[in-house]
Write a protein that binds this DNA or RNA. Structure first.
Lengths: 212, 212, 212, 212
DNA sequence: CTTTAATCGAGACGGTACGTCTGGTCTTGTT
DNA sequence: AACAAGACCAGACGTACCGTCTCGATTAAAG
């Protein structure tokens, strides 16, 4: 189970509440907001629990009670703010959907969210829990979305049936991560070239002519 | 100019040496060795200048004199130990060479070197100098090697002439970086599948039958 | 009014009991036992309300409800366990009684009880309530016992009639407290010398020859 | 060796200095001053290393480098400020000198110094080093002074030759400590009565008539 | 029987201070 | 100069307690 999940500790709706004073949601929210803001403003380098506490007005000890590590806190703050932001409106064409999705993703990485993701990945290199939380909370859902698009394309005959979905998605997304991490440009033109190049190998023979 | 290059401060070749006691090479070497060892043993999380000083027997202030940041030190320690290790013996087939090169690279990432690279990338997320040094010292040379192989393949007619080299290399290497950073497996079988998949789109039409 | 007295809140003997759930005596006892045990085992330094709560199995808030301060709790735990322990069997001779009483007291201070008294006095230096409680609960009764012996001696003609009782008792007991607090030895021989020395100045001239 | 002595670490006057940056005396002094001031103002209860650091403007880590415990710091701050303050001008009469010395001592205990001593003794109950330092730095010198007076009195024939010096001094001083620690009054009249009472048993028979 | 008022356990929360660790800077004497 | 040694400031770390608080569950007398 990832750190985030354990931190959230979803209240059982079932029957009797746990004893003791209930957790204060306002506090919880304030911490996550502050975490997100700090991450967005200064990056992981200046992200400290002390500053989150100061900014959120929540006691340091309270933060330590609920988050096991800096990474977990960063991760949860990130998710709380970003999670709903990435939705994919399905059109008729899988190729077009993918292109759109990748373009959006690149735009995300170029902005504030990218800065935060960089921090989380960095933090994760010395804390596996953080990576796990990032996988569960962000990477896997994103992959599921991509996978869904690909499968629709295969079902409709637009894409080849023998695609290895994980590899196609890796080919589309991994370069974006790496470019971001290595401070290389992520401009639309480059991303567009990448998408086209990967998609070229994915189209079903019959549909190949119509690709662009 | 990257951090490493500035740290090295190459002695002027001009006749008259600078006044004062000359820099002690033994010390310099000891620091890099200790840096590498610590990085390899405990990862970036426990890599501190204090520990490098203690381990190398070099005074902390001496380290601060020569390296501008933790990342630069890690990077240089890494390069000093790893640089010569990656050579590519060219065979007749570009496809075979690439496959070999990628496999070696994956093996590298799975081991000690991978652990260190993770640390450097992590450190780089809050220190652009470190990323720049990593690019100059490691990524660019690796890309040059890959590029050379691809160009040989194109010249020999084995690979398509319209390949976008940067994208092909990104498709081959970026997933490896990402899998490593996200603690996903890098096993040979998976890497082999990746290589095959990318290469499939690179072969010249005439050579396609002979691919595997 | 001392802290202890206010903490005990003696139930009114008056007919109508207060409404609501009555106080649980088991709990009360458990707290005092735990307080005594902790004080005896680890001294004042590690005596915390948290630990008393943990050890006694009583909720922290319950302890805070009934005891106004750490010192008050320590004091009451001490009294509950120690109070009955010091009884003085009167013999014919006041001198002999005093000697015995002082010897017992020294023995007390050398042991567990001494350790606890040290803690209470220490705690009292930043909490006057604690000192007051210690005076009321321990010092004054002890002085009363000593005073009684002295007065018997005076009445019987064994001791001089012009004795200043408070000073004699101070001369007998204060050194014991100080030796304990300053980690000096409290061995029987030393205590014996002290008693003899003080008593020497107290005997009535007629009885002086029979003193020892 | 006591904590104080080890904290002071007197520089060896011998030959070669130790390497490295020498200790900053200003800093050292500032800490002791702040320690004394805090102790005098708020007592041991609010005496924390954090506040000493804040008040003195010295980094907390520097304080931790030089003083092993709160008690040691308090003790040294106390000694630095108080040590020279207690001198006894010898007159012709031992009895008069003692009376004067005791009176002065009581006055000391009633004031700021007394407050600090209370704190040190309290702290010492959970830290033997502190008590040891207090013994070495304060109690023993005071006893030596008292002893000297008594010995002069014996030599001059004013006092009995068979006095047990340690017990006499205990009889004179211990009550003062205890009265202070237990918040009992230390007024001059009471102290005067104490002195007279103890001295009464000390005078040589020949001199007894002249005592008061 | 219900109220009603109290006790009690559980635990969240804001705080303060702890003692440690690291990062950087600086000031020495030695080489 | 370079270097070792180490003092110093700054500040974050994670932990331990403090004292207050909000709950629900319990318990008995009073209505």
């Amino acid at each position: 189970m990832s750190a985030v999940a354990s931190a959230v500790r979803p209240r059982p709706v079932t029957a009797h509440r746990t004893p003791g004073r209930p957790r204060c949601d306002v506090t919880h929210k304030a911490v996550l907001d502050a975490a997100f803001a700090l991450l967005a403003e200064d990056g992981i380098g200046r992200f400290t629990i002390e500053r989150v506490a100061a900014r959120s007005g929540v006691a340091r000890s309270t933060i330590y009670r609920w988050w096991p590590s800096k990474g977990a806190l960063a991760m949860e703050g990130f998710l709380a703010a970003v999670a709903p932001e990435i939705a994919v409106p399905p059109s008729g064409s899988a190729a077009r959907d993918l292109r759109e999705q990748v373009k959006r993703f690149a735009r995300l990485l170029r902005g504030t969210v990218g800065r935060i993701i960089r921090g989380i990945i960095a933090e994760g290199q010395s804390d596996p829990e953080t990576v796990a939380a990032f996988m569960d909370g962000f990477v896997t859902p994103r992959r599921a979305e991509g996978s869904a698009i690909l499968q629709r394309g295969i079902a409709s005959g637009e894409l080849r049936a023998d695609l290895e979905l994980d590899l196609v998605l890796a080919g589309l997304y991994a370069p974006l991560y790496v470019w971001m991490l290595l401070n290389e440009s992520l401009d639309d033109e480059k991303v567009e070239r990448l998408t086209r190049s990967v998609l070229a190998g994915c189209l079903a023979p019959s549909a190949e002519a119509a690709s662009d």
